[in-house]
């Protein structure tokens, strides 16, 4: 249970179309993350699946049943909101039981579900408190608990960790991953944080301007980005791009380092900062001048300008003795990513 299919989904607000024909299949028990920059339509898409908004055209199926015109209440889904949306005048117990009472469930069943969720999320001793008396993390647990007690077909989570501090976010992220493993229920998770996406997802859906750019596993996206946008969006620091004219089956990077290219003409070469290393011999290299050095202890992030002025970033392990204004010569072992003039991937990798 929990297979969700989107077929040709579009959504317009007035004359502005914000979702442009999305097709997507989410498998049973899968944790799929929608990721993308602000305004890419990820929350809108989640609301369409939830039934809080109606698509302008297209079809939404849950377990093979067309639910496009079915109300949010009857889709059997549970949502965790960015703001938690806990009822401030109710206790934690009342917040958890509120939705179940609507279904005229026996009180004993409600009590046992609440106790189970309380044990699972370690909020059993907070049951008589109100949301204002809870910390951010505790509120988050209650919001998740409210979704769990309903035993839904799928969980929809709209940036659930964005209001937490960095440390708590890390802890909650791990707990969410464990929770998904234990419940084995389909989860759709919206975030703009790629670390959350990479660590939690079975598959990631990268969205931009209301369209799906790529759907793949986290490592699939990292290793084989299908276009320039995905290549630049996934991975931190961002991938370095060099626009070069290739001739005779190779392209020459600033500094003279040659890269084999399957075609002639304009190409974009993408190299991840982690794949660059200091050149140790006098062979042709990627050359530039260091602009900024960020020493993080275990690794050092170096911002430089290549000899043709293209900005580039590299992450070197350890604490190399380098400073701003110095020349730097870099090389790499892995074949770089190649993109054509249309921004699409050229090499199969």
């Amino acid at each position: 249970m929990g297979r969700i299919v989107l077929k040709g989904i579009t959504k317009s607000f007035g004359n502005a179309e914000v979702i442009h024909g999305i097709d997507l299949e989410i498998g049973e028990g899968e944790l799929v993350v929608f990721v993308g920059p602000s305004g890419c339509g990820k929350s809108t898409l989640l609301r369409l699946i939830a039934g809080l908004d109606r698509p302008t055209s297209g079809r939404i199926e849950i377990d093979g049943e067309d639910v496009t015109r079915v109300s949010a209440a009857d889709r059997g889904l549970a949502m965790v909101f960015q703001s938690y949306a806990l009822y401030p005048h109710m206790t934690v117990r009342q917040n958890l039981s509120f939705g179940l009472e609507n279904t005229r469930m026996p009180k004993s069943e409600i009590a046992s579900r609440i106790d189970e969720a309380g044990r699972m999320l370690e909020i059993g001793d907070l049951m008589e408190r109100r949301p204002t008396q809870l910390s951010g993390g505790q509120r988050q647990r209650v919001a998740i608990g409210r979704a769990i007690v309903r035993n839904p077909t799928a969980f929809l989570l709209d940036e659930p960790l964005s209001n937490l501090d960095a440390e708590l976010r890390g802890t909650m992220r791990a707990e969410l991953a464990q929770l998904h493993e234990r419940l084995a229920t389909t989860m759709i998770y919206v975030t703009h944080d790629q670390v959350e996406a990479m660590t939690l997802a079975d598959r990631i859906v990268v969205l931009r301007k209301g369209m799906v750019e790529q759907v793949d596993t986290p490592l699939g996206l990292y290793n084989q980005p299908q276009n320039l946008f995905v290549a630049g969006f996934i991975g931190s620091p961002n991938m370095n791009f060099f626009r070069i004219r290739a001739t005779g089956g190779s392209a020459e990077l600033p500094g003279g380092l040659k890269v084999p290219v399957p075609c002639d003409g304009e190409v974009t070469i993408g190299i991840r900062p982690q794949n660059l290393k200091l050149a140790v011999d006098d062979a042709p290299a990627l050359e530039g001048e260091i602009r900024l050095v960020e020493a993080l202890g275990a690794e050092t992030v170096i911002h430089a300008d290549a000899v043709d002025g293209t900005p580039m970033v590299t992450v070197l392990s350890g604490q190399p003795a380098l400073g701003a204004g110095q020349r730097i010569r870099l090389t790499f072992d892995e074949l770089p990513h190649l993109f054509g003039t249309d921004g699409m991937r050229l090499n199969p990798h």
Binding site: A73, F98, G99, N102
Partner: peptide
């Protein structure tokens, strides 16, 4: 907050409730 009403909508809460 609108979220509270949306949470209630997801919970199939009747309008009078």
């Amino acid at each position: 907050p609108r979220d509270l009403y949306e949470a209630a909508e997801m919970d199939a809460t009747p309008p009078m409730r």
